[in-house]
Each structure stands twice: as structure tokens, then as C-alpha cells.
Amino acid sequence: MIGKAITGKGFAGCISYCLEDKKMEMDKNQPLMKNRAEILLFNKCFGNKKELVQQFNEVRRLNPKQSKPVFHFTLSMAPGEHLSRPQLIQVAGDCAKEFGFADNQFLAVEHKDTQHQHIHIVANRIGYSGKTNVSDSNSYKRMAEFCRKMEQKFKLQQVLSPRRFLSKDQQLLPRNDQRRDQIKAQLQQILRSSKTMDSFLQKVKAQGFEVIKGRGISFIDNSGVKIKGSNMGLSLSTIEKLLQKNQTQYLTRDREKGNKIGLETRLANAWRLTVPFSPYKRSPQESAFISAFIQSVKQVAENTADLMADLYKVQYPNPEDYAISEVEREYYRNIRKKKKKRGYRL
């Protein structure tokens, strides 16, 4: 059994929520869910919603200094467990005795709009004497102890209390919280696709979560359940580190992708410029550029050859002086002889 105790300021909203039919959250267009609430017990009050609110407020006015006269309890069974109507009434009566409002106004209601069975109890903390005779001190711890008693009394599934109310040895025991695990899986999936904190928060809110961010971070789901990020291994510092890691990975991936594309482009351009029978169809501009490039290379080669020949002529006036073999020397001598006959020297 899981219990929750909340103090509030107004009876009208709380009683209306417990007694009225409502539209299902999954489909807001469908008609109201009828017979959602079944009243289990009246204690020193009676009537419909309007009459109950009036009666609770009349007693409340006996102590106008008390700003939070409402005590709202929720008791939920584990999935698959079900108590009979007399047993639920007994649970409500035991809760009234445990928290000290058995002599005050209260009503117990069973809701049938969820798969798991649960009841709501609305109690007035102010008694007919005008005093606030119901304390809300340590209400979470007292509720945890009360749930453990009901589990033993009705032989229900044993559930661990919140960690802060357990001994050091019990705090080390593993806990199985399907709702928390489901929320954690959703948040981890959103984290994988987020680069910055702003984008992460926007995607989380788009999934229907409310985010409370301060020194730490907490999440509230559609059912109003608040879970700290640190309790799921997703503290604010952890989320920031994961986002920074994602951003680094995205940048590295983009850089590698850009380098690969740039290399492929350069190789393709080199292939198209150097290979004479390129499989790519060249444009007229590319063909003109290639022709001009080849002509310029030929011109540079010819100029270089002429320059080298001039240098050799300066250093070696007689070509046979730098001939490699005797055949070459003989060849140059014959040329010299012919040119002497014609009247000029080489």
C-alpha cells in the first residue's frame, strides 16, 4: 500500500475533485466517466457536494487563524490487489484513529478511474471546539508506518517505506519502482537526442512533464508525482555532463563528415582535371581550363629547357666538353667542322 498526506487551504476544490465525475486524460473528447466515485463513509457530515463544502466551512470558521484546515489522504493498493468495501471502510476508520481526526468531520471515497484500487479521505483538522486538534507534524513518516500496519493487517504486498524513514541496513535494499524506471527511461531517451539544456527542457515539457530547476532538478509527471533527478541517477550535474558529451560527439561527427566530403570533392576534382578520359562529362569552361593549363605546362617546360641550354653554353662553350660518351664528342666535332666551312662558330 502507498499513502500520501497533504494539507490544504480550501475544502471546495478538494471535495469537488473527490466526488465529481471527470473526463479521462487520454481522450478529452469522450464523455464524462460516470460512477467514478463511490462514497464509503460519512463522519459527522452528510449530503451532496455543495452541502458537504458548506458544513466543513462552517466548522472551519470557528478557527479563522488556521490557514490550512484541510487534510487530504490518498491510499492506493498495489496492482492486482483488491479490498472489499467493508475492508476499505475499516482502512478509512483506522486512518482516522492513527492521525487523530476520528471525532472530526471526514468522508472517505473510492475512485474507480484507475487500474489500481485507491481511496481518498478528506478530513477537517479543526474540531467542533474550534481548536486545531489534528497535527500535520511528521505526516509522511506517520503515513508510511500506517501503510505498513495495513499491509500486515490485510495481508497485502509488502512495500518499503521512503528511504529517509528506514534504518541504514534497510536503505541498502534494492527497490523496484516501475513508475520511476519508466520516467527515467523517457528522460534518458530525450537526453540522447539533446545537445543543450534548453532543448532538453523543451522536449521534456513536450512530453507532459513539469520541471523544477534550482540547485538541483525535479520532475513532475502527468499524475502529479514528483521525482528528484538525483533519485533516478539523473542529477543536474549528471545531465549537464551528458549534454556536454553529446555536444562534443555531435561536433566531432560533423567535423569528420565535413572532412570526408571535402576529401571526396578534392579527389573528384583532381580526377576530372588530370585523367584525359574522365568518365565525367566536362563543361565547356572546364575543357577550356584544361587546355590552357596543358599549354602553360608545355610553355614552362620549353622555357626551362632553353634556360638550361643557355646555362650549359655559358659554362661549356664547346658542347663536346660535356658530352657523356665518345660517340657524342665525335658528333659535336663533326658539327663544328661543318659550321667552320660555312664561316661561323657555334
Score class of each variant (00 low, 15 high):
Val225Glu: 08
Phe146Gln: 06
Glu51Arg: 10
Asn334Trp: 10
Lys195Leu: 15
Ser193Asn: 08
Asn176Glu: 11
Ala102Trp: 04
Phe56Thr: 03
Arg164Leu: 07
Val225Leu: 12
Ile227Ala: 08
Pro162Trp: 10
Gly216Phe: 01
Lys195Val: 12
Glu51Ala: 15
Met1Pro: 10
Phe42Glu: 04
Asn104Phe: 08
Lys228Arg: 12
Gly343His: 07
Lys257Ser: 00
Pro69Gln: 01
Asp136Gln: 09
Cys45Met: 08
Ala323Asp: 03
Gly8Ala: 09
Lys22Met: 13
Phe165Cys: 08
Lys44Gly: 06
Ser139Trp: 04
Gln249Cys: 06
Leu40Gly: 00
Arg179Asp: 09
Lys260Leu: 00
Ala78Arg: 06
Lys65Glu: 13
Thr7Tyr: 10
Ile324Leu: 15
Leu88Asp: 03
Val70Glu: 07
Arg342Trp: 09
Ser167Leu: 02
Val122Lys: 01
Lys241Ser: 06
Leu346Lys: 03
Leu83Gly: 02
Arg179Cys: 10
Arg192His: 14
Lys241Phe: 02
Ala268Thr: 05
Asp310Tyr: 09
Glu25Thr: 13
Gln117Tyr: 02
Gly130Asn: 02
Leu107Ile: 10
Met232Arg: 03
Asn231Lys: 03
Phe277Thr: 06
Glu151Ala: 04
Lys22His: 15
Met197Tyr: 11
Gly233Val: 01
Glu326Thr: 09
Asn57Val: 13
Phe165Ile: 05
Phe73Val: 09
Met143Pro: 01
Gly8Val: 02
Glu320His: 03
Gly8His: 04
Gln188Lys: 12
Glu256Ile: 00
Ala123Gly: 07
Ser296Leu: 10
Glu25Met: 14
Ala301His: 05
Asp177Phe: 11
